[in-house]
């Protein structure tokens, strides 16, 4: 009899406390869905604070992480995804948390950490079930780290016709070869700059090298060996080295433009999941 009475006494209290937390969760969710991330974090944190039974630990920590991520507060996002990971109850939840941590690491450009986590995931998880996800996020990590060839290889593992793989291949084709620009500048000063479309710089480079080359060779012809060595070393070689470095730098700058154009295309037009 006493137990029945105690049960009756406690039941409504527990039930309504439960309802209270549910309502709070729904309220925070509503704020989150409305894009009010700052306010949603406050309400999620309030729920966590009053959730004595830790019933919402996983879902709320995950949501706080997402809200921070959407607000570009990546360090805080990783902190809360990690808390959610501690409270994950099954492999799906674990995978979701780890994926979010990886995606946030990609966004905050800590690519090494993203790769480490992907490698861990590959070793410790049901690999076959999630392998395409691993390839996908590894591809994104490589892509945002400006390693388009590795990115293309990763997306190719998902499908040879993958939309992003094609984009990566286009970038690889469009990019200028830094090595080629430097090598042709070694052979003919200024040609590397002309290859990258910097015609004026190329012609200037050619002219300076011709002038100091003439003075150097002329010194040797006139048996002024020491003059030739000094002019050759201090002027000709300096302009020659500068020409080669310049060619490489121009090629790198062009490549950054090409990569940025591709990334802008992804940001504006790609419909798939992004980090």
């Amino acid at each position: 009899m006493k137990k029945t009475l105690l049960g009756i006494l406690l039941f409504p209290v527990l039930l309504f406390a439960q309802n209270n937390l549910e309502r709070q969760f729904a309220y925070a969710e509503n704020l989150f869905e409305s894009g009010l991330y700052y306010q949603s974090i406050t309400e999620y944190k309030r729920l966590l604070f009053f959730d004595d039974q830790n019933e919402y630990s996983y879902s709320v920590n995950l949501k706080i992480g997402l809200a921070y991520k959407n607000g570009a507060k990546y360090d805080e996002a990783v902190e809360y995804f990690s808390k959610a990971l501690i409270n994950a109850e099954d492999s799906d939840q674990t995978f979701e948390c780890k994926t979010e941590i990886i995606r946030t690491n990609i966004l905050r450009k800590t690519f090494n950490r993203a790769h480490e986590l992907l490698d861990e995931l590959e070793l410790n998880s049901d690999y076959l079930k999630i392998k395409n996800d691993i390839y996908y996020w590894r591809g994104w990590a490589y892509m945002l780290d400006d390693d388009w060839e590795s990115a293309s290889n990763e997306f190719a593992k998902i499908s040879q016709d993958h939309e992003i793989k094609k984009l990566c291949d286009e970038v690889i084709n469009d990019k200028y070869s830094v090595t080629f620009a430097k090598v042709i500048s070694y052979i003919l000063p200024g040609s590397g700059q002309i290859y990258t479309g910097n015609y004026l710089s190329g012609l200037m480079s050619l002219s300076w090298n011709a002038l100091w080359g003439y003075v150097t060779i002329n010194s040797f012809i006139q048996d002024r060996i020491f003059d030739g060595i000094v002019v050759g070393d201090l002027l000709w070689l300096r302009f020659y080295r500068g020409n080669v470095e310049n060619a490489g730098k121009f090629a790198e700058m062009k490549n950054i433009d090409i990569a940025n154009k591709a990334l802008r295309y992804l940001q504006e037009n790609y419909k798939g999941i992004k980090p």
């Binding site: 039941f11 409504p12 209290v13 039930l15 309504f16 406390a17 309802n19 209270n20 309502r23 729920l47």
Partner: peptide, 16 residues
């Protein structure tokens, strides 16, 4: 207790 529960419920909306 149902009555107490109901009043708790009404109050509980602002509990947090």
């Amino acid at each position: 207790f149902v009555l107490i529960g109901s009043s708790t419920s009404a109050q509980s909306e602002s509990d947090l």
